[in-house]
Simulated scan of single mutants.
Amino acid sequence: MLVEPEIPQNTGNIARLAAATQSPLHLLGRLGFRIDERSVRRAGLDYWHLVTLEQQLDIAHFRHHHPNARLRLFSAVAPRSYLDADFRPGDALVFGKESVGLDPELLARMPDDVFGIPTLGPVRSLNLANAVSIVLYEALRQVGALASAAPG
């Protein structure tokens, strides 16, 4: 789930990842770009039709439509690593906008569900598309979804 993504290239890369892993892509809030058919076609996203896409106004609306989904929040300021997260089928992996991440109030309300990706160098955080890739593949590994997948 991407909350108010700002950079279309990141969302395009994440959409391709979603299609490749048969994972739904949820876009919440205001987008920093257009995803109508003409815009997607012009951007060369020929796999967009393979993406299971849902749009909601905000997390409250997402929860209304998916009441059993457990939210796993990701932030550059998280005290715990995504490697310490226990992922389950149906979890919603929540990433914030590129410029500021997730709302600090949301992170404060759900401290047990906030994780980050450790970095070894002086870089504060990773590119959004890279972060989603890292976490999604770990979640898929943990739930056994990769066991029958062919390397591609």
Rank of each mutant, 00 (worst) to 15 (best):
R70A: 12
A19W: 04
L25Q: 05
V40N: 05
G29D: 11
E4L: 10
R72L: 13
S125K: 00
R41D: 10
S99Y: 04
F33W: 07
R70M: 08
S125Q: 01
P151K: 05
P8Y: 01
R38T: 15
D84C: 06
E138F: 03
E138L: 06
A150Q: 14
Q9W: 09
N130G: 08
L27W: 04
D91M: 11
G90F: 12
L31Y: 03
G121F: 05
Q142W: 02
L2Y: 03
D86C: 13
N10K: 07
L31R: 01
A145G: 13
I117S: 05
G12P: 08
P89C: 09
V94M: 04
L106K: 04
V77T: 15
L31D: 04
G121W: 06
D46L: 11
P79Y: 12
L2Q: 02
R41Q: 14
E4V: 08
F33H: 05
M110S: 13
L71I: 07
V135D: 00
H26W: 13
R88A: 15
T119G: 08
A108H: 12
R70T: 13
P24L: 02
F33N: 04
A76N: 05
A129D: 09
V77Q: 13
A85Y: 06
A18G: 08
F74K: 00
Q9I: 10
D113S: 14
G101R: 03
L83Y: 10
L126F: 13
M110T: 09
A129S: 15
L28M: 14
R63W: 02
L31G: 04
P5E: 11
P67L: 08
V114R: 01
A145T: 00
Y47C: 03
Q55N: 10
E6N: 08
Q56E: 11
F33S: 04
G101A: 05
E37V: 14
A108G: 07
L107A: 06
V135A: 03
H49E: 15
S23Q: 12
V114W: 06
P5A: 13
E4W: 07
A60F: 07
T21R: 00
L128C: 12
A92S: 07
S99A: 12
V100Q: 14
